[in-house]
């Protein structure tokens, strides 16, 4: 039982990270039907910029909460800017060409950004300052560290904020209508390009937050850390029904749980396999995902 509880806590923590990354995929896919391969790189870049600012602030003698919130905000802003730049350069000119060219362009951007990170920051792991979030609650043998608490509560906050943004504000309405019909949105006076940029920025900011969380949780970041979580988060987005924001959150938590429980109860080596097996099973039996509506799947 205690083991189960411990795994549950770990699963929710990991699931939070996947959910945050998956949101970016799902929002971008929803609005321009693109698997944004560079999204994993936004996540990695967020982790790096986070550690850069965190170490800088720490060395300047700032208190812990300033370090955490400052680096978080700066990294999110940085990734939002990065995503807008990538979108303007690599995706916007291809708005009207075939989807395969945009996909390859995204792939190119992903490789480019990954190697850019490697060239500027080096091939080796970069360690996060550990002194900020030590300790935790202990209940019997179950351990809930402050770090996990931080990750889960921050995720909860971001998810609520995103929901308010998408479903209650004008920008959210513009995003949803642009996702459904770009021409018609323009005809009612929505600037589609700006809306798409905003979507990219929000998605990347969430990924940056996830990057910092992963960095804090595992203690270090690496230039190529974006790929595997990126793929799994995309799997989570598809699992939840791509284009659906609530679905991406649920999908992220499911993938995180599956991974942790499979590693804990079945086999540590094959933990990554289970995420994909679940994905394929869900797609086979319910191709539109858990929350998916009738997606228009005729376009290739």
């Amino acid at each position: 039982m205690e083991y189960f509880l411990q795994q549950l806590i770990n699963g929710i923590t990991l699931g939070s990270v996947y959910a945050l990354i998956a949101l970016g995929y799902t929002m971008v896919y929803g609005i321009i039907q693109l698997i944004n391969f560079a999204h994993g790189e936004f996540f990695a870049a967020g982790g790096y910029v986070g550690v850069i600012f965190m170490s800088y602030l720490l060395s300047q003698g700032a208190p812990a909460w300033v370090c955490l919130s400052g680096s978080l905000i700066l990294a999110m802003a940085y990734c939002a800017m990065l995503a807008v730049a990538v979108e303007k350069v690599a995706y916007k000119p291809l708005r009207n060409s075939s989807r395969l060219s945009v996909l390859l362009s995204a792939l190119g951007m992903s490789i480019f950004l990954q190697n850019g990170l490697m060239l500027t920051q080096g091939v080796y792991d970069k360690a996060y300052p550990t002194e900020l979030t030590q300790g935790g609650f202990e209940m019997g043998n179950v351990m809930l560290s402050y770090m996990q608490l931080f990750i889960v509560s921050l995720t909860a906050f971001l998810l609520v904020a995103l929901n308010v943004l998408v479903f209650k504000t004008r920008i959210g309405k513009a995003m949803r209508s642009t996702a459904q019909d770009k021409v018609m949105s323009a005809l009612v006076g929505i600037n589609a390009n700006r809306t798409i940029s905003i979507t990219f920025a929000i998605g990347a900011a969430l990924a940056a937050a996830a990057g910092i969380m992963v960095g804090l949780y595992y203690g270090s970041v690496r230039y190529d850390m974006g790929f595997v979580p990126g793929i799994k988060a995309f799997a989570a987005a598809v699992l939840g029904g791509i284009g659906n924001i609530t679905g991406a959150m649920i999908g992220g938590f499911i993938i995180g749980m599956v991974e942790i429980f499979a590693a804990g109860y079945i086999s540590g080596e094959y933990k990554d396999v289970f995420a994909f097996v679940i994905l394929i099973a869900v797609l086979y039996f319910r191709p539109s995902g858990i929350m998916g509506e009738n997606v228009d799947d005729t376009r290739v």
Partner: peptide
């Protein structure tokens, strides 16, 4: 003038096939 500025100027279109937003 880009298309999304025109509705504000009073020029509005109901396009072919209606194109309502199906999920709103």
């Amino acid at each position: 003038i880009v298309s999304d500025k025109l509705p504000k100027m009073g020029l509005c279109q109901v396009p072919e096939g209606r194109r309502i937003f199906p999920r709103l």
